[in-house]
Simulated scan of single mutants.
Amino acid sequence: MNTLDNVLLAAAVVALVLYRQLRTCSVDERRMYTVPLVLAVVALAQGGLIDRGHLALSAALVAGEAVAAVGLGVLRAVTIRVWRAGDGTLWRRGTGWTLAAWLVSIAIRAAFVAAGYAAGIKPAAGGVLLFLAVTLLVQGLVVGRRARGAAQVNVGP
């Protein structure tokens, strides 16, 4: 896959994730981890995440993107409403803040790409997929943790 293919794949994944996050869905942690893990495998299999011509700067950029992806995943996760229904089922639904946090995530990823271009770093084909994988995995972990916490609330005798 080339960079354009990865960007199109990432856009499709974000559209699907947004669609699902802005609807009321039951919390299924296994489903929350599947897409990020597949994206990570594809990104890592493509290789070339570090530009060998600018090794230190490229590695710093990838590390910065990873830190930003973690923070943005946490940010989006806390904007998602999680609750326990009367029958014990755990539910989640994104809010308007979730959509806003996604727009911030996209803008920050674009800023990293622009910074890389300005520094003369060749963009990695799988970079966008790795960023998306990390941010979705962290978001899923935080939402899952919040759901487990909600499962312990209001437990009667």
Rank of each mutant, 00 (worst) to 15 (best):
T34E: 07
V35M: 15
G64A: 07
Y117T: 05
A133R: 02
D28Y: 07
A100N: 07
V134Y: 06
R84L: 10
G88I: 00
V62K: 02
G88L: 07
R52H: 14
D28Q: 14
A69M: 11
T79Q: 14
V17I: 08
L49M: 14
V27L: 11
V41Y: 12
A111R: 09
R93S: 08
T135I: 07
T79G: 06
V74K: 01
A68C: 13
P123L: 06
I50L: 15
A100H: 09
W91K: 04
P123N: 05
P123E: 01
L103Q: 10
D28N: 14
R109H: 13
V74S: 07
S26Q: 15
L103N: 06
Y117Q: 06
C25G: 05
A133P: 03
C25D: 11
A77M: 10
A11S: 13
W83V: 04
V35Y: 13
L132D: 02
G64I: 01
D51T: 03
A111D: 11
Q21E: 15
A77C: 12
Q46G: 12
A10G: 02
R31D: 13
W97N: 02
T89Q: 14
Y33D: 04
I121M: 02
T98W: 15
A69N: 04
G47V: 08
I80R: 01
R76M: 15
I108H: 06
L72D: 02
G94I: 03
V104S: 09
R30Y: 14
L129W: 01
F131E: 00
R92I: 05
A11R: 03
A110W: 14
G88D: 12
R81N: 13
V70F: 15
A125C: 08
V67N: 12
A110C: 10
I108Q: 12
E65V: 02
R93V: 10
V82I: 12
A63L: 15
G116F: 00
V62N: 01
A43M: 11
V78W: 15
W91H: 13
H54K: 10
V35C: 13
G73N: 05
G48M: 09
I106V: 15
A66D: 08
R84E: 07
A68S: 13
Y19I: 01
I80K: 04
G120C: 06
I106R: 03
I121R: 04
A10M: 09
A11M: 14
L55I: 05
G126A: 12
L61N: 00
C25V: 11
L55Y: 14
L22W: 12
A10R: 03
Y33S: 08
R52D: 09
Y19W: 14
G96H: 11
A69S: 14
V128E: 03
A119G: 00
A68L: 13
L37E: 08
W102A: 00
